[in-house]
Design a binder for these strands. Structure first.
Lengths: 107, 107
DNA sequence: GGATATCGCTACATAAATTGTAGCATGATC
DNA sequence: GATCATGCTACAATTTATGTAGCGATATCC
């Protein structure tokens, strides 16, 4: 599915590898959808609107990255590491409202 | 170049529009490259390794989003809004080191 | 014990995004 | 008027994503 473990990690700089992983389509969105509780494969498909091929590929990427894991009982969920990352992203939620407001004012 | 203003903004939820914008390839990276000082078009091309077509497209997206602007004297730079967003992302730098370390430990 | 349902996931043709390379138009400098 | 740096465009080739159908395994009900 994915050739290199993390695309663009050629520099060896973790931040680049991270930005690369998070910059793949649907990755941020998938992490976001897992923010509250575990979700099933099909739930994630429906919630995002992405194709199963891609959902599967991205979930694999995120698992390799140690950010999510599959609990057969409950579905996909964030790992401890994944929750840490989510914490860093939570401020985006509030900020995005402000950003959207300014976009409306200055179109 | 880009069809909808922000892809996936159909929900009308700012956070979705933002995650969508940031989830486009090279977008996070471009913002990151602008963290310290303005950069020229070709500098950004060289720094990222992305094709001019894409750099141009993403810069356009980021300009529409009000996150960057072009100063003819100095090059592309973050707007006030863009700097705010960058602030939210700075913790990623530190966290990525921790993440990389754990990846090395648990391969 | 067979029909039904849910689970994660795969196959595959079509469509869209990205790459890599070449080059254009404009303005400044020599 | 030749040279250079600027942002940017054209376009064929490649890579990635989409949309739809369905598989194999497991559990549940009748």
């Amino acid at each position: 599915m994915v050739k290199r473990r993390v695309r663009g990690s050629t520099t060896g700089r973790p931040i680049m590898a991270l930005l690369d992983l998070l910059g793949r389509r649907w990755v941020l969105r998938l992490v976001w959808e897992l923010r509250d509780e575990p979700r099933r494969f099909r739930e994630l498909q429906d919630a995002t609107g992405a194709s199963p091929t891609i959902v599967n590929g991205r979930l694999a990427d995120l698992r390799e990255a140690g950010l999510i894991e599959l609990d057969p009982e409950k579905g996909y969920r964030l790992t401890v590491l994944g929750k840490e990352l989510l914490q860093l992203f939570l401020p985006l939620h509030v900020w995005s409202e402000k950003w959207a407001k300014r976009q409306r004012e200055r179109p």
